[in-house]
C-alpha cells in the first residue's frame, strides 16, 4: 500500500523544500518509487533542487486533476539527476517531480464549485496507481490555508517542520490542532536550524511535551547547507555527514507503514 506524506511549516524558509527533497531521495534510494508534488513553486522550489528547468515544465498536477493531460505529461522523471544511474531492467528506485500550481485562489474556486476533497483524493489515488508509487510527498505552502487543509486531509502522514523560534512555535500549534481534528493517522515534528550549543535532547523533550507530538529529529543549522544555497541535494553531496545520518532516521520513520486505527 502506498503512503502520502505532507510536509508543512508555518512560515517559509524553515527548510521544508530542502528536507522534503532529501527525504524523497533517501526513501527512493531505499528501493522505492517516489514522487514529490511541489506546490511551492514561487519560492525556490524543489524543481531547483532537482535541477529541473522551469521552462521545460509544460503541465502541472492541476492539468492532470482536471483531465487536461495524462499523468505522464504532468510528471517529470528526475531519477537520473536525483539518484543517478539506475538499473533500467527494474522499475525501482524511481523519483518523479510533479509541479503543481494549486494556489489559494484556485482552491477557493475548487471549494466553491464543489471540487471536494474526495475528487482530489481520487486524483491522487489515480496518480499513485498510474505511476505505481510507493510514496508520495506533498510539499505544501507555508501557513494554514485551504490547500494545507486539503493536503492534510488526503495524507497518511504529516511532517511538521519547525524552527526553534517563537513565531514558528505558535503557528505550528495551530497546525497540530487542525491535523488532530482532521484525524491524520500519523504526525511528527522535525526541528530544523537548531543552533549549536542548544542541548538537542532538552529541546526535543521540550517540543514533544509542548505539542504532545513525537519529534523525529532535531537538525542543526548547518553551514554547508547554507553554502549549498539550495544548489542540490545535501544528502547526495554529503552522504556521510552527521546531518544526513539524522535525515536517514526521519526517512526510516517514513518507510514504516502507517499505523492503522483499531476499528
Amino acid at each position: 500500500m502506498s503512503k502520502i506524506i505532507s510536509t508543512h511549516s508555518f512560515r517559509g524558509g524553515t527548510g521544508k523544500s530542502n528536507l522534503t527533497a532529501n527525504l524523497a531521495v533517501l526513501v527512493a534510494r531505499a528501493g522505492y518509487r517516489v514522487a514529490v508534488i511541489d506546490t511551492d513553486i514561487q519560492s525556490p522550489g524543489i524543481h531547483v533542487l532537482f535541477r529541473l528547468d522551469p521552462s521545460s515544465i509544460k503541465h502541472s498536477l492541476n492539468d492532470f486533476l482536471w483531465g487536461r493531460c495524462s499523468i505522464q505529461a504532468a510528471s517529470y522523471d528526475v531519477t537520473a539527476s536525483a539518484i543517478g544511474q539506475v538499473d533500467e531492467s527494474t522499475d525501482r528506485p524511481r523519483l518523479f517531480l510533479i509541479p503543481s500550481s494549486i494556489n489559494a485562489g484556485e482552491l477557493a474556486r475548487i471549494l466553491r464549485e464543489g471540487y471536494d476533497v474526495s475528487r482530489l483524493n481520487d486524483g491522487l489515488q489515480d496518480l499513485l496507481s498510474q505511476l505505481r508509487l510507493d510514496f508520495l510527498f506533498i510539499d505544501t505552502h507555508p501557513g494554514v490555508n485551504e490547500e494545507t487543509l486539503l493536503s492534510i486531509a488526503v495524507s497518511d502522514s504529516l511532517v511538521l517542520i519547525v524552527r526553534p523560534d517563537q513565531q514558528d512555535f505558535q503557528g505550528t500549534a495551530v497546525a497540530v490542532e487542525l491535523a488532530r481534528k482532521l484525524e491524520v493517522p500519523e504526525m511528527f515534528l522535525v526541528v530544523n536550524k537548531a543552533l549549536a550549543g542548544t542541548d538537542f535532547s532538552v529541546l526535543k523533550d521540550f517540543v514533544e511535551s509542548m505539542y504532545r507530538v513525537d519529534v523525529a529529529a532535531v537538525l542543526p543549522l548547518n553551514n554547508e547547507m547554507v553554502e549549498m544555497a539550495s544548489g542540490g541535494i545535501f544528502s547526495n553531496r554529503y552522504p556521510e555527514h552527521p546531518f544526513t545520518r539524522e535525515l536517514k532516521r526521519v526517512a526510516e520513520r517514513i518507510l514504516k507503514p502507517v499505523p492503522q486505527p483499531i476499528a
Binding site: P164, Q166, F169
Partner: peptide
C-alpha cells in the same frame, strides 16, 4: 544555555 524555554505557545490564541 536555556534559550529554549523562552518559546511559549499562547494556548488561548
Amino acid at each position: 544555555t536555556a534559550p529554549i524555554t523562552i518559546f511559549m505557545v499562547d494556548e488561548a490564541k
